[in-house]
Design a protein around this nucleic acid. Structure first.
Length: 595
RNA sequence: GACCCCGUAGCUCAGCUGGAUAGAGCACCUGCCUUCUAAGCAGGCGGCCGCAGGUUCGAAUCCUGCCGGGGUCGCCA
């Protein structure tokens, strides 16, 4: 399905081959190409078993006939061999060196503009607690998808939605007002989001104590949970907030301001940014009218004074959209927000929500409702669902204090990078500032790559002790290769002859292996863009870098006497360097010139 | 109870649009720094692809059932 350009070249030729040889027509897209396994000679392999019915011949004869036809008709098909039902095709060196010439001069990971505009929502923090490891997966995933879509030629609008209102915020506010004694980020030295989070925890602690006291006094636990004075007070505060009480609003503004300062510091360190922020306090009223309109149109119905949608025909449930008292639920707001976004961005052809898979059902229902309301863009909505990040101890639970804080884990990764970097002591001429910047880059790369290389929809395990790996299949491994290449290029300077237009030297196995990996990368970028999956790109980038390292280790570049060969290998290195940098850019990861 | 996701080497993960002897990394073992950065390279060890059926010339991959893990089903967000 995701053919690279060689496959796109061969497919039509195969199509005509079937026409000529067997008077059969096949869909070029159904041909399954694969990389030839290393134990056989060849670059591309076609399995002919699926075509035996069409050819009416045995596997060997079919493959033989196709091979002969391709060799005669397609310029770059040099020779072929047949093993059982497998047609192994050898592509001429000039094809590979021609591709390299191209890759050396241009960005092969930049596709022509599609003219399409897409919105990616990739963060939706609550303002009552700091960001944690789960947010990191969310943010890195969505950010990378945005970059991938951009590289694939789309215009991308990156947004976050901030859950800045509701009972949870009031809990922090109330606790701060009662027990905070005027503490501020400045007075405490605490990061703003951490300070507010501290009072959220404080609320919970005191609230639990109240419940216990009530239960000890003979009240049932369930009742106590509803009647604890602190909770009642928080609920009252929410009412005051909604009524626009100046004092409550002022406190809310102030504490949210602290949180935003904290978030922005974290975002800056993560290396992400947003084109637009949506605040729930401004959008939570949306959707109500849309639901009432839907009611009028008969898409929804009324029962017990509330407005419902019936999705039982579609295998889902019935769901309330407006409460009996006329107020909104979460779904209502999401309906309104989606509509608003498409009004704001009229050309929008895709809206992607990066949200954990515990909300799979919610988005299924949301998209279905919007389809029922008749919005033509409803089919362009996509829930980029990702699995939870588990700890060795199991699920992260804030109540049990097992949440891994985002800032803390970044610190740890960078610290690990520092320890390793100092140990290797290759950076003696770096200033302290340069070192700090480098270790930051490496630590973040390790973290991002670790979270991105796993299939997004899968639940994954993060072991803080073991996951901080800087060797093997990691971000720093890729960075290291890039840095080595840059070192080579620096040594070459500008004195070395650029890749000439004359015939390239015969390819060595190691060189060809690298070019083939490079050649495959654009198809993988395309796949990543279609599937909205950075993991495939992360893994192919690793394959490329691995092939390059093998080459680097066994084939001399600057030490090569023959100028043409040296130029070719330099060009190869430069192309790999440029492409790796771009691929890592797509993952939101920076690469250093030295390390 | 209903619905959704997941189960591959000791550990973490690729492979899943059906194809050749199922691949990496970590860990463990052996080699390689008087040649371009050893955060590297070469090699070794390690697999009833959860289990049982089915479809197929061919199943880790598709279908069914079961087992195990997780999630979701609120006039919460």
């Amino acid at each position: 399905m995701f053919q690279d350009r060689l496959q796109t070249l061969l497919a039509p030729a195969l199509q005509t081959a079937f026409q000529h040889l067997f008077q059969a027509s096949i869909d070029a897209r159904t041909i399954a190409f694969q990389q030839t396994r290393p134990e056989f000679e060849g670059d591309v392999t076609i399995n002919v078993f699926p075509f035996l019915k069409l050819s009416g011949k045995g596997p060997e004869q079919t493959a033989q006939a196709l091979g002969e036809h391709l060799q005669a008709q397609v310029d770059v098909v040099e020779r072929f061999n047949v093993v059982k039902g497998f047609l192994n095709i050898v592509i001429a060196d000039r094809y590979w060196s021609g591709f390299l010439r191209e890759a050396a001069g241009a960005d092969i990971l930049l596709f022509p503009a599609t003219g399409r505009k897409m919105m990616v929502e990739y963060a939706s923090p609550n303002t009552n607690k700091p960001l944690h490891l789960g947010h990191l997966r969310n943010i890195f995933l969505g950010y990378s998808v945005a970059r991938i879509l951009q590289a694939a030629g789309n215009e991308v609008v990156k947004v976050q939605v901030i859950n800045d209102r509701g009972i949870h915020i009031c809990k922090s506010m109330l606790a701060w007002r009662k027990f905070g004694q005027g503490e501020t980020p400045a007075s405490s030295g605490l990061k703003g989001d951490k300070l507010v989070g501290k009072y959220y925890v404080e609320f919970d602690k005191r609230y639990r104590a109240e419940i216990e006291a009530l239960v000890a006094g003979g009240m049932a636990k369930e009742e106590a949970e509803k009647k604890a004075p602190l909770l009642l007070e928080a609920q009252e505060m929410l009412r005051q907030w909604e009524a626009g009480d100046p004092d409550v609003r002022a406190l809310w503004e102030r504490m949210n301001g602290w949180v935003y300062d904290g978030f922005n510091a974290s975002y800056a360190r993560m290396g992400v940014e947003f084109d637009k922020d949506y605040y729930e306090s401004r959008t939570y009223v949306l959707g109500k009218q849309d639901v009432l309109d839907g009611l009028k149109k008969g898409v929804f119905y009324e029962k017990d004074g509330a407005v419902w949608v019936d999705n039982t025909q579609e295998g889902l449930d019935e769901k309330v959209l407006l409460r009996r008292d006329g107020t909104s639920v979460y779904m209502t707001q999401d309906i309104g927000t989606a509509i608003q976004r498409f009004q704001e961005y009229p050309g929008l052809s895709k809206l992607i929500y990066t949200v954990g898979n515990e909300q799979d059902y919610h988005f299924k229902v949301l998209f279905l409702i919007l389809r029922k309301l008749g919005f033509p863009w409803a089919d362009e909505l996509f829930h980029l669902s990702y699995g939870m990040v588990d700890l060795p101890s199991g699920k992260m639970k804030s109540r049990e204090g097992t949440v891994v804080d985002a800032d803390d884990i970044m610190d740890e990764m960078v610290e690990e990078a520092r320890a390793k970097g100092e140990e290797l002591s290759k950076l003696d001429d770096f200033t302290a500032e340069e070192k700090a910047r480098l270790f930051e880059m490496i630590g973040l790369a390790a973290l991002k790559y670790f979270l991105l290389k796993v299939d997004p929809k899968k639940r994954m395990l993060f072991d803080p002790a073991a996951s901080i790996d800087l060797q093997g299949h990691t971000g720093p491994f890729i960075q290291y290769t890039y840095a080595r290449i840059q070192s080579l290029l620096r040594k070459a300077g500008s004195g070395d002859a650029p890749l000439g237009s004359g015939p390239a030297p015969a390819l060595m196995g190691e060189e060809k292996a690298v070019i083939k990996q490079l050649h495959h990368l654009p198809a993988v970028l395309n796949e990543a863009a279609v599937r909205l999956d950075p993991a495939v790109l992360a893994n192919q980038t690793y394959e490329l870098v691995k092939a390059y390292n093998t080459f680097y280790q066994s084939v001399p570049v600057m030490k090569e006497e023959d100028a043409a060969k040296r130029a070719f290998r330099l060009a190869l290195s430069a192309a790999v360097g440029r492409t790796v940098k771009k691929a890592m850019w797509c993952l939101g990861i920076e690469v250093p010139e030295r390390m």
